[in-house]
Computed example of a mutant assay.
Amino acid sequence: MYKRTILIVDDEPRTRQGLKKTLDTWANGEYQIITAANGEETIEIMDKQKIDILLTDIRMPEMTGLELLKVIKDRNMSPIIIVISAYSEFEYAHEALRLGVINYLLKPISKKNLIEAVEDALKAVEKQERAGMIEKVVDTKLVDVSAHNPSNRIPIREALDYINNNLKNDLTQKEVADHVHLNPSYLSVLFKEHVKLTFSEYVTRRRIQRAKELLMSTNLPIVDIAEESGYKTAKYFIKIFKEIEGETPSAYRKNNNE
């Protein structure tokens, strides 16, 4: 199972080991706590593995903490960052905040303040991951449907709700039209007018959206995800998924769950 990793960067061995010891005791094996003595070592580590939380000293020889943060930002690495400093000069704090730091701890750091800062950072990691997942699975055309807000047309709102709640089942335009007490041809016209997609396009996009959510959040086999998303065969599901997403469901899962 993946363990979140916390990296402590400080050029003073005693400080580095003291922080590690405190966090090791607090983590009780639940998180991986590792250390680096300088910026160069930090970059080497981050090139090889994902770092969830970075605690870094501001003042270090050769590469300062702020220079390290700039390199990380330039490389599009996005750990949650906590800065440690014995200096309370405003410009350091100001520059650190500009570089995406969420907390600024002044030495000497109490165990309580350190643990509180790391717990806050863990919440931020989870929030960042949820936001990333939503961004990856969202279908902009479906977002547009919500933005157009067709709720002023009650039959359309009811039709959308019925589709969304029955994605796993066979869905025909006639069945949905019967549910909202409309002629199927009239529903088709209303649907295109208010949803900006045909009935079948909307159903397909909602099914693929459901599949993406399951691929990202579960370990279900592809055949089960196909069934949960309303497809009778995995072969047909894979074909439709690839047409819309440009890759197979397996590739999508692998690329988005690194």
Rank of each mutant, 00 (worst) to 15 (best):
I240Q: 15
W26Y: 03
N257F: 02
K235N: 15
N257R: 13
I222V: 13
T172N: 02
I53K: 04
L142H: 01
G246Q: 09
L214C: 07
D57V: 06
S85F: 09
A36Q: 12
E40S: 15
G246I: 11
E129D: 07
A131N: 07
I156A: 05
A234R: 15
V9A: 04
V101D: 00
N255T: 12
E62S: 10
K112E: 12
L167K: 06
L23Q: 02
E95V: 01
E201I: 13
Y104T: 03
K73A: 12
K70F: 00
K48I: 06
T64F: 05
T248H: 04
E41P: 02
P155T: 11
I45M: 10
K3V: 03
L214N: 12
Y231L: 07
Q32L: 11
A251W: 11
S110F: 05
T172W: 03
A27N: 05
I156G: 01
Q17Y: 07
F237Q: 07
A147D: 10
E91C: 02
V189T: 13
I225V: 14
R130V: 08
I45K: 12
G65W: 00
M60N: 04
K107W: 08
I208H: 11
R75D: 08
D161Q: 11
I6A: 02
R75W: 09
K174W: 02
E129C: 01
P108T: 08
D178K: 14
R206F: 10
R206V: 15
K174Q: 13
K212M: 14
I80T: 01
E62I: 14
E201Q: 15
A121Y: 02
I33Q: 10
P108N: 07
V137K: 08
N152I: 05
D120Y: 09
L187G: 02
T248M: 05
P249V: 04
Y186F: 08
A36E: 09
P13G: 05
V195T: 04
V125M: 02
R16F: 06
V203K: 12
K107V: 06
V118M: 07
K48L: 13
K73E: 11
V180R: 06
S88A: 14
F199M: 11
R157Y: 12
E89V: 07
I156E: 01
G29Y: 08
T42R: 02
I102M: 04
L214V: 06
N149P: 04
E258N: 15
F241M: 05
K254D: 09
N166L: 04
K73Y: 09
S217N: 12
L54G: 01
F241V: 04
H181Y: 07
P108E: 03
E228M: 15
N149E: 08
K254I: 13
D224Y: 03
I84K: 01
I163K: 05
S185E: 14
G18H: 06
M216P: 06
A234P: 12
K127E: 04
I80R: 00
